[in-house]
Design a protein around this nucleic acid. Structure first.
Lengths: 102, 102
DNA sequence: TTGACATATCGATAATTTGCGATATTATAA
DNA sequence: TTATAATATCGCAAATTATCGATATGTCAA
């Protein structure tokens, strides 16, 4: 529980990053299958997000990194791919912060 | 329901503005009485927030305005004072957005 | 080992935000 | 009407963010 609300709100202050978080809620609805990976459990890779965002690989990678540093995403490297999925724990925590502090 | 999530998250991405919102949750706990005004119903004036923030009047006024434009505060002018209080409706809405979209 | 990908990071420029002082506006009281 | 107090707005310099292209790093296959 080392959540940084300001960091989190900054991460959420961007349409592309909000989209990523939303897409990852139901990944199989928004991304094509990839390498037989179970998207729900493992996540989606940077390339999939890059394509969906229609932005450069550099930007996609940075956005994912910002969301991860804010605690909103978790990451796992498998082979040459890096998979990102939601960190539901932090998302719950910030929801609670919202109800209690704000 | 013309809530702008990005606008709202930007408004929340600042420690001073988070404080203001928090103080206004229980205003009588954080502000001295003022002109016999019922803080809970009417709000607190710019000068009270300025003093509490320990920042300039200009900055306080701008922060209150940012929160208000985001829909998080409501405002009422009484004589030469402008009072601000929380807009619980938008705050509820953004909480719901949080649960549904994010 | 080398080549080919996938991802991360660096460096840059444009755009936005921060917080201030100075000034304009509004409302009251004399 | 004028002086004064409260608030809003303008214009600024510094800091931060957005987004990119170029490059570095890591990983696998041949």
């Amino acid at each position: 529980m080392c959540m940084e609300p300001i960091e989190i709100f900054k991460a959420l202050s961007n349409e592309s990053r909000l989209h990523i978080l939303h897409w990852l809620k139901e990944p199989e609805k928004h991304f094509a299958p990839h390498e037989g990976i179970d998207m729900r459990n493992i996540g989606v890779c940077v390339g999939q997000v890059t394509e969906k965002l229609k932005m450069t690989q550099s930007t996609a990678s940075q956005y994912l990194s910002i969301l991860q540093r804010a605690g909103l995403l978790k990451t796992e490297r498998i082979g040459k791919y890096t998979y990102y999925k939601r960190n539901e724990e932090t998302i719950r925590e910030i929801g609670a912060f919202f109800n209690n502090e704000i």
